[in-house]
Write a protein that binds this DNA or RNA. Sequence first.
DNA 1: TCATCTATTGACAAAATGCACATAGAGAAG
DNA 2: CTTCTCTATGTGCATTTTGTCAATAGATGA
Lengths: 129, 129
Amino acid sequence: MNGPRRKRERCYLRSARFLEPALAQLLHYGPSHGYTLMEQLAEFGLGDLDRAAVYRALREMEEDGWVISAWETQETQGPPRRVYSLTEVGDQMLLDCVQDLQRVREQLDFFLSSYRRHMIEGEGEYHDA
Amino acid sequence: MNGPRRKRERCYLRSARFLEPALAQLLHYGPSHGYTLMEQLAEFGLGDLDRAAVYRALREMEEDGWVISAWETQETQGPPRRVYSLTEVGDQMLLDCVQDLQRVREQLDFFLSSYRRHMIEGEGEYHDA
DNA sequence: TCATCTATTGACAAAATGCACATAGAGAAG
DNA sequence: CTTCTCTATGTGCATTTTGTCAATAGATGA
């Protein structure tokens, strides 16, 4: 009950696991670069996450073939930007993720409705000794 | 595209994050022990996960006050078992988790319907260079 | 020249995860 | 009584993932 007071934010969909399909979906609208993508991630409830995490995810996605990147030196309002584009492979990987996430949604639904059912049935009590 | 061929199972809800509320919900039905809980986890789509992970999760949940445990030496078909019971605190923590997971569900819905909308609008193309 | 905004990256500690292995009681077969 | 299998819990450790902080750097304007 006391202990080292771990915070345990418990932010289920904030991991890289969800970051990848989220970035892929945004890139599906068209090529873009990390800084802008980061702002758009807020749409998906992924606001104020660590910048490094996003750039890292993009680089790993490139290693894995989801995206390709090129330096864009024109039209910047600052230093050169790395512009990412979704590949055909990435397009397919996004589809796979979407299907996985649909299953996750069903799992989640089952869990939540199971909880509700359990509560309505009146067994809503804890079982301390 | 090649690389060290990382498997990347991408199992969104298999982490300890989801293990905790799942175990708590099972314990809400009544006290139980790790080995049995492990089998019941399959209900929530958490089949064949690492045994160590489950025992670890239970011990950490005890540290955090979700559950308490006691050795049960009677009625075993083998070595003594550690029987876990949900505490009142754990009951409340489960409710908090359920509320978090409802928000996750909404986030997921938004992501998935956004994907579907995007596809239906006919922009379903990747943007390779 | 100094501050500020845009933009990307590196380095490293801390936490989470996966996997193999250790321990051990009960019961049945031989 | 030895061995095997099933039940049951746990340890140890390497690897992976995550979070945080700082470094770099061009453009713009005061």
